[in-house]
Design a protein around this nucleic acid. Structure first.
Lengths: 209, 209
DNA sequence: CGCAGGTTTGAACGGCGGGTCAAGCCGTGG
DNA sequence: CCACGGCTTGACCCGCCGTTCAAACCTGCG
């Protein structure tokens, strides 16, 4: 169709990044080979190196790309909920690995852990991770502020509350993602909501028993 | 001296595991080669494979070994403190990366993250991780129970409190270990202690202002 | 002394996989 | 219809470890 701009290029980038994210999720960063990504994307190995200057760069980009996608999806979902308490509940729903049947089990969190490992030594990844995390805390803080404005939540330092709640979610999610027999998705969900209600200052149930 | 038993063998095992843990901490699991470990241990590469059947086995053992060491050190330290509240404070001190100058910065937490990555795919490591984590939660729960018995803390489900507090520590520690500019060791420490006081039910300061 | 067994060495092997490249494959514009 | 240039292929090269192994090295004992 229209041709002046390099049409396929942008698509290829995304296709490859998507494929890479999928492969990393199921095989792990360490066991991901270029040929795996190529196969998953349905192209030849050589093409991968045509679009990305090195395997390292590809994997780094894929990691931040995938986390970005997740964030955007969550963001979109939450924005259409009006009650701050329900927004918070939905955020927790989406954060508990395997809590919602419609989403994959490991997926997001497995990638996060790979990001952490990499960020320990790769300065660029460290920077990206900090930004990603900041945005995640920010979106919690926004919910808190909205709730405080509407009177659903008690007053308090929204940023500090976001840090605490977000960290609790991180810590619990790790264990759930690892299939810890003591830490089930349900238990995690309950813990998050109760601590949130306690820290932020709201009632768990609107009015029902 | 005495000779019937294989004398040097046990030492060599530990020497190599120590060396491996050190190398993993500074280079990362992915970039750790057998020759690195050999060099760090002051022996030849061949000897490593004489004591461990494969690189994989060596690294797995090194990871759990190192975490074990950390746990034991902390355990010992805490046992000699009498007040439950002070025990808890000490536990938090030791858990905040870089909070105490005398201990290394990354060290423990960097290894934890490597454990997590591995546990996602290696069933044996998954099992070991669960045990390690259970023990960690247990030691928090023990402190809580002690405090409840002595009247320092309010009543409550010690195991559930331990899970929540432990997870919060995990989640915060990750960010501190990554040098997140927003999450300083001091901020993490404060957050842990305040949430602990709130959840568990005790006063932060004994009596002073 | 010299043998025996466990220990230690380091050179050599082999496979794996990232990266390169020369050659084909198109679609487009002349 | 041809020539150009971006896209795509897959075979190939090459360095890097994990692993193996034969030989050397101790140390204690007969």
């Amino acid at each position: 169709m229209s041709s002046p701009r390099p049409r396929g290029t942008k698509d290829r980038h995304h296709e490859i990044l998507d494929a890479a994210a999928r492969v990393i999720t199921e095989r792990g960063l360490a066991d991901t080979r270029i040929s795996d990504v190529a196969e998953a994307a349905g192209v030849s190995p050589g093409l991968i190196l045509y679009y990305f200057e090195s395997k390292d760069r590809l994997l780094s980009e894929a990691l931040t790309y995938a986390n970005d996608q997740f964030y955007l999806r969550m963001s979109r979902e939450i924005r259409r909920i009006s009650s701050a308490r329900e927004q918070l509940r939905r955020l927790v729903d989406l954060s508990v690995p395997g809590y919602l049947a419609e989403y994959g089990k490991l997926d997001e969190w497995a990638l996060w852990i790979e990001v952490w490992v990499r960020a320990l030594r790769d300065p660029q990844m460290a920077k990206d991770r900090e930004l990603l995390d900041q945005r995640w805390r920010q979106s919690i803080a926004d919910i808190v502020r909205a709730g405080q404005a509407s009177g659903e939540f008690a007053a308090g330092d929204a940023d500090e509350l976001a840090l605490r709640l977000g960290s609790l979610i991180d810590g619990l999610a790790i264990q759930v993602a690892m299939n810890d027999s003591q830490v089930t998705p349900e238990r995690m969900h309950r813990a998050c909501m109760e601590v949130a209600a306690n820290l932020i200052g709201f009632e768990l149930e609107p009015a029902s028993a």
